[in-house]
């Protein structure tokens, strides 16, 4: 019997993969779109790099992110010394609302709204490490005027196994 089969030639079982490819393409398009929407919430910046950081991970619980955005830059131009950069803010973003850098009343109002909608949410201040304290401090003032006295400052987590980054020495 077995020799009969070999006389007819080998059989090639093949799966039809076309629907699989269709679904995979759909998933790729879906995730690309979702990723774009998510990344729009966090502004591109280099947050402070600390000596021996005591930073802890952000909780997944509700948070209101206040971004103080620096001027536009390409990654390469700040690779050597991230602090050698324009210290003025370009805009301030609270959640998805964008304000001019000097519109502190708008920031306070947005935070009051957000706080009344989500009373348990924590406020996270995300500022570029190169910005001047004279730019960041008024924003902290705007946060306190919204009745918030606790804020989480964003910095890089310690690198696992890497030597501590020494900057400002």
């Amino acid at each position: 019997m077995s020799s009969q089969i070999f006389h007819r030639g080998p059989t090639k079982p093949q799966m039809n993969i076309t629907p699989l490819i269709d679904v995979v393409f759909l998933l790729i398009i879906f995730f690309m779109l979702v990723n774009n929407i998510i990344s729009e919430q966090s502004v591109q910046m280099i947050v402070p790099q600390l000596d021996e950081p005591t930073t802890r991970e952000l909780d997944d619980a509700g948070r209101i992110i206040v971004n103080i955005a620096p001027a536009d830059y390409a990654h390469r131009e700040r690779a050597d010394n991230p602090l050698l950069f324009d210290g003025e803010a370009r805009f301030i973003r609270v959640g998805l609302q964008t304000f001019a850098a000097d519109d502190l009343e708008g920031v306070t109002a947005a935070l009051i709204d957000a706080k009344s909608a989500y009373p348990d949410a924590e406020v996270v201040l995300r500022s570029d490490g190169a910005l001047y304290y004279g730019v960041v401090q008024p924003v902290m003032g705007a946060i306190t005027r919204a009745g918030i006295d606790k804020v989480n400052l964003v910095a890089y987590m310690p690198e696992r196994g890497a030597a501590t980054v020494k900057i400002g020495e």
Binding site: F31, T55, R56, V151, N152, V154, Y156
Partner: peptide, 22 residues
């Protein structure tokens, strides 16, 4: 797809601070 969308920036953490109260 995963190479293009991978995030190569280091993780960010937070320091909880009290703000200056007038």
């Amino acid at each position: 797809y995963f190479v293009v969308t991978a995030n190569f920036t280091p993780d960010e953490g937070v320091l909880t601070a009290k703000l200056p109260q007038g």
